[in-house]
Design a protein around this nucleic acid. Structure first.
Lengths: 339, 339
DNA sequence: TTGAAAGCGCTAACAT
DNA sequence: ATGTTAGCGCTTTCAA
């Protein structure tokens, strides 16, 4: 089977290649009559244009790349789906470049990834989107990029993110409204910007309601189940243990639940637990976790939209970059009757 | 910044473009002297060859595509990583084509995905790899493909998979060795081939050990937490309830754990539960699940290797296509003292 | 061992 | 409104 080119189509339709090109690209200035002839030939021959030749000629590949180093499968997949949705709309393809930022040869690796792939633009997520070295590399290769949920307050690239701080504030406020005062907090990986946002929201809410919290109620976690378990063990061994624990993500919250179960502490009656992210696990444990849902898909789509706009040099000055999160109340929290 | 082409390099090095081409492709028949000159020029100019032009000329894109419709994030990510690992080795790039096989316009969608993307070959996972219509579509477009864990016993395309039936047999055998006789089974989605393999392994083990099991101990699930919950509710409401439940994946096993907790049935003392897949959730719940780990990464890498071999027309007749699974014993199972 | 020239399939100038 | 031609950057005949 030989490839069908526009030459073949032109021959068959009895027109020039340019006319064929015009038709398949929906350009104006083609008589309806010609249109018909060409379309007929295209169908008869089963012609499909070669994206490669197009790409070479147009100097654009219609490929976007997602560069990431992130261990959270549920999150990444949502991001991928969000990007893909926008790509579908704009006829782009999505290429993935997974890597490991803890790898010794990290920078060489992504450099080689970038080199051998041809891409029009790159999408970055945490923690890469906050690493200046990565940004510099992209700048060096003159690759346009957009950031998905960066922590930096004023990124110089297009970005979209959720209002983490506000969501964290609301979650804390919710716990307070349930009568909780002794609310412990397990922070996420300090190298992720989100961790700080979430902490801030929690602290602000406490301040707002004039609640002062014991230092022992703060734990540094790392977004992993294991780190959550360690923190939970400490928190739940305190003589005055908290009535509620706010874990910065669901994995750590699940770990708190485990430790509580082991210590025969009833959740939510004797302890309220909340997580963050609404990952699948939050529904797969019992009691199901009260958590925060981020519109990851929307955020990712939006960042992608901005990137594509930039590629097309369309000034896409839509102001919206901050997306609202949603409180998801499930079974791991309840009213606290102090004393 | 203008793009550096091999012309520029040739000029700088004072040789012909062909010589440059020879050097950057590590061809033979180039004098060391020339090599040096060219390499120097390449470095000085910061030349990087244009993958697009290469692709057009060579009629190969060096892009592989993963086409999938699968709701299991952990699984997909492992697959992606496995494919990527092989791609790294062979200098391919990975493009993802997520889709939804329950979508009304499913076939049109993947057809359009396939059309607008240029790819050398496609990798398929469950359930797509078992759908004849999908295979036909790929054949129609003359796209080479390989299958990751297909259910079909003798696929006509290159494939790699795990020995699910055997692993399922071993898991059942393990439960029997712990003294269990009343072992219930929750099957997975019947449209996934794995579901049947796992069932068969379970049945074979029971037969081998002359254990006959009540019909009420069989439940049809769909690999979702919700379906597992429904099945678990039935199983744990039986007057003679099973002493062990074998769920065909971890999500359903997690659901069994939930129902047991709600019914105050102690796991593993009063009920052993096992899952399958060793997904992250299996460690994020308490007690942690005894489960089966599939070498998903290896399987995916291997299928990719075969696909690439096929693309290069290398006859890659390595026989190994079946990968061993591994029993992961955690805390959700224990010895059963009958009576 | 090296080089000149053709061409992969397409689109944008530039004619007509 | 339509056609001719050049060329995107690379590799591959084929000739020297």
């Amino acid at each position: 089977m030989t490839k069908i080119t526009i030459k073949d189509v032109a021959l068959r339709a009895g027109v020039s290649v340019k006319t064929v090109s015009r038709v398949i690209n929906n350009e104006v200035n083609v008589r309806a009559e010609m249109q018909e002839k060409v379309k007929k030939a295209v169908n008869e021959l089963g012609f499909r244009r070669n994206p490669l030749a197009r790409a070479l000629r147009n100097q654009q590949t219609s490929i976007l790349s997602l560069l990431y180093s992130n261990p959270n499968p549920g999150y990444i997949l949502e991001v991928q789906n969000g990007i893909q949705a926008q790509c579908d709309l704009d006829n782009y393809n999505l290429q993935i470049l997974p890597c490991d930022h803890n790898d010794e040869h990290f920078f060489e690796k992504i450099e080689s990834l970038l080199q051998r792939s041809s891409t029009d633009g790159v999408l970055l997520i945490e923690p890469l989107c906050d690493m200046p070295e990565v940004i510099d590399l992209l700048d060096k290769y003159k690759l346009p990029y957009a950031l998905i949920s960066p922590a930096t307050s004023k990124p110089k690239a297009p970005f979209a993110r959720s209002n983490d701080e506000q969501a964290s504030y609301q979650m804390t406020e919710y716990l307070i409204s349930q009568g909780h005062k002794d609310i412990a907090f397990i922070m996420g990986d300090p190298s992720h910007g989100d961790s700080h946002q979430r902490l801030k929201g929690y602290q602000n809410a406490l301040a707002e309601y004039n609640i002062s919290v014991d230092d022992t109620f703060f734990e540094q976690g790392y977004f992993t189940f294991e780190s959550g378990e360690i923190s939970a063990r400490r928190l739940l061994s305190l003589k005055n243990r908290p009535s509620a624990i706010f874990a910065s993500n669901d994995y750590m919250a699940a770990a708190v639940l485990k430790v509580a179960a082991q210590k025969q502490i009833k959740v939510p009656q004797e302890l309220s637990i909340v997580g963050y992210d609404d990952t699948p696990v939050s529904k797969q444990i019992w009691p199901a976790l009260t958590t925060v849902r981020q519109p990851i898909r929307d955020i990712s789509s939006h960042a992608t939209k901005k990137l594509i706009a930039q590629l097309n040099k369309c000034s896409f000055d839509e102001v919206k970059t901050l997306f609202e999160c949603q409180l998801v109340v499930r079974e791991s929290t309840s009213v606290w009757a102090s004393d």
